[in-house]
C-alpha cells in the first residue's frame, strides 16, 4: 500500500499537505491549552508531512525528465494543448 501511495504523485503530496496543515491547530492548542501530547502529535505530523517528498525522491529517484526539453511536445503545458 505504501509503495502504491509513493508511486502516485498526487496521492503522496496530498497526504503530505494534510499532515502539514494538521500540525497547525494541534501545535497551537497543545502549546497554549495542553495537553502536551497534542503539540508533540502536531510536531510529528509536521515532520512526517515534510519527510514524504524527500523520502520519495531518495527511494524512488528523480521524476522522469520533464517533456520541457522538447518544448514542441510539452504535455505539461496546459494551454499548449489548446493549439493542437
Amino acid at each position: 500500500m505504501m509503495i502504491t501511495l509513493f508511486q502516485n504523485r498526487l496521492a503522496y503530496l496530498s497526504l503530505s499537505l494534510v499532515l502539514l496543515v494538521a500540525a497547525f491547530p494541534l501545535i497551537s492548542a497543545g502549546t497554549v491549552h495542553g495537553p502536551e501530547s497534542l503539540w508533540w502529535l502536531g510536531l510529528l505530523a509536521l515532520t512526517c508531512g515534510g519527510l514524504i517528498p524527500p523520502v520519495q525522491r531518495l527511494v524512488w529517484g528523480p521524476p522522469k525528465p520533464p517533456a520541457a526539453s522538447a518544448p514542441a511536445t510539452d504535455e505539461s503545458t496546459p494551454v499548449k494543448g489548446d493549439r493542437q
Binding site: A23, F24, L26, I27, S28, T31, W39, L43, L46
Partner: peptide, 14 residues
C-alpha cells in the same frame, strides 16, 4: 528547544 521549533513550524503553516 523542540517546543520553539514546533511553534515556529505551526506559525509557518499559518
Amino acid at each position: 528547544p523542540l517546543e520553539t521549533l514546533a511553534v515556529a513550524g505551526a506559525k509557518g503553516v499559518w
